[in-house]
Design a binder for these strands. Structure first.
Lengths: 332, 332
DNA sequence: TCAAGATGCTAATTCGAATTATTACAGGGT
DNA sequence: ACCCTGTAATAATTCGAATTAGCATCTTGA
């Protein structure tokens, strides 16, 4: 195997010392460091010719910065089943990483006992300058360890504190859901149902919280159901359903229409952005869109801030209202 | 932030040397290394109590392997327009990288003058242990430089020599196209057309070569046309068309049917796997499928070999015949 | 009793790059 | 001849863990 070039090699070729190569490479001019222009040029020429780059490992051992941003996901990034979920985030991440001149390191190696884990016996999480965390839910112990070990990271998606505040770039589900309820109330709806877990992941909890706040504020009735049962909704006199999962909402619309019910005439259906499963695209649901791409971009920016200023950015981006065709005034 | 524990710290606490801690940690018993059970227990106890974990950076520095595989593409990987093309390869790459315990480094930082380049003034290609090259065509100068600099890499897709053999894992287009012609000849076809560039990228050239070999072997007529014109095909008495691009093939079928021609009755259309553009999915073309995912996997394995044994693997994987509905016996 | 052999551990070195302290050498002034 | 001041480069050290050579100490057997 062709051995990797070292600064020592470059130094030999340029007829200088390893230290000089390092100084040239890092453009050091401060603190009484001086390199003659010709020497500098000679070293740079050798570097250019050989395509030498500093070994990130050695560099990182000494100080911390190698313009590598880590991306951790609990599942494979590429398989097409996950593509719809991860892809928009990754587009944003890639875009912004390109902007700030960083490379992306996908932690595909990190697994312990068959499952991916952030901290395995030889976690390479520290290879990167910092790390982005992607996934609907994140292991709380992992999160706590990241915080306590002071590893620079930003979660994509809001996270509750885990032994300390967790830096994140999330979506403002609370406001987004409240807004949908507001619109529905304005159209005359008074009987609401929220369909979905509403618990577990922060993203679920936030949506349900927004729902509860809104129905309380308007003094209307709001029911929380883990699953969408058309009969049950009808029996309870529900006129507007908010579905966490897009595909569940779409299924509900199809089921309703199959039984001769009109949507939104008899039932309004609103989707709350979560598309973890492929959904039929022939149903134009009303609801909101999660700004996934933008979240990816912002997360990279936030991570940059963490690295440069040691801050703990926490930010929620607004979701975009999607007009659709499944929200309308309820029949009297 | 609390400073990380080092082996030195552990050693102090356990009243032994750093070396001993390392030996205990790695369970070394070979090569005349012996640690008294009590000492071992004492060290392990301190490790347990403190929750010490070895710094992976330092470890990597020592064993000269970063366990990072680079992935270079001339365009962004994630944007959905490219997804169909890159994704299957990446699935395979990710899968196999996980298998061999390597992380993936996406070179998002590499650009010079707006475009991504492998070698810019500060190329970071050497950050990775080795590199996978992805893309329909690859800049020949870049390729030559990779070869001459002895950078470990594997191209996905066959490549002609560039100042030396280029390690690659490609698809066996020559055989695949020949096979299609064989089948068509067996059904009675005697007038063939190949539609597509047939030049430029190796993948195009290989297909055309397979076509020419096959028509020569069977003593039938074969014409090469850069574009598919239905009239021209008819005028020339063509009964079987092989289309490089899947979408071109599909368009041809639709056009033929629109003019009242039967496919495959009046015209057989075969697709040669290249799907760089989205194609209508309501046409079940006969042809072959490029084993993209498998190519990704094999490429990672090949790169591993390059790294471990310094070989220059070159391998072509068989394409899979796709039955479809657009190949049949020609009308008399 | 003394060499031979086991046993148990540590000192010293290595990996590659960054940094600090130091040396070497010029030329200028006295 | 001597000191001083810049200037330009290098030697030596650092980071944390892995590894090798080697040093004590203790047993055995003849």
């Amino acid at each position: 195997m062709a051995k990797r070039l070292t600064q020592q090699d470059i130094a030999r070729m340029a007829g200088v010392s390893q230290a000089t190569v390092s100084l040239v490479l890092n453009n050091r001019t401060d603190g009484g460091v001086r390199i003659a222009p010709e020497t500098r040029a000679r070293v740079l020429e050798v570097i250019r010719r050989t395509g030498y780059v500093a070994n990130p490992i050695a560099r990182r051992l000494h100080d911390q910065r190698n313009r590598i941003l880590g991306v951790f996901t609990y599942e494979a990034v590429f398989p097409s089943t996950r593509a719809d979920f991860y892809q928009p985030f990754l587009e944003g991440i890639e875009e912004q990483a390109e902007e700030v001149g960083c490379d992306l390191l996908l932690f595909t190696s990190a697994k312990a006992g068959g499952k991916r884990r952030i901290f395995s016996d030889d976690s390479r999480i520290r290879l990167a300058d910092g790390c982005l965390l992607l996934g609907r839910s994140v292991d709380r112990d992992d999160l706590a360890q990241l915080v306590s070990e002071g590893i620079p990271f930003v979660s994509i998606g809001r996270r509750d504190d885990a032994g300390g505040p967790v830096p994140h770039v999330g979506a403002d589900y609370v406001s987004a859901v409240r807004d949908l309820v507001d619109r529905a109330v304005a159209l005359g709806h008074r009987e609401f149902a929220y369909v979905g877990a509403g618990t577990g992941a922060e993203s679920s909890a936030d949506r349900l919280r927004g729902f509860k706040q809104a129905v309380a504020a308007h003094g209307v009735r709001g029911t929380h159901l883990p699953f969408a049962g058309l009969e049950r909704l009808r029996d309870a006199g529900i006129t507007a359903v908010l579905s966490e999962e897009v595909s569940d909402g779409a299924a509900l619309v199809l089921a309703a229409r199959e039984r001769g019910l009109s949507v939104p005439g008899d039932l309004s259906v609103l989707m709350l952005g979560a598309a973890t499963r492929p959904a039929p695209d022939d149903v134009a649901l009303t609801g909101f869109r999660i700004p996934r791409r933008e979240m990816g971009r912002r997360a990279v920016q936030a991570l940059t801030e963490v690295l440069e200023r040691g801050t703990t950015p926490r930010e929620l981006l607004a979701c975009e209202f999607v007009e659709g065709t499944t929200l309308g005034a309820p029949r009297r």
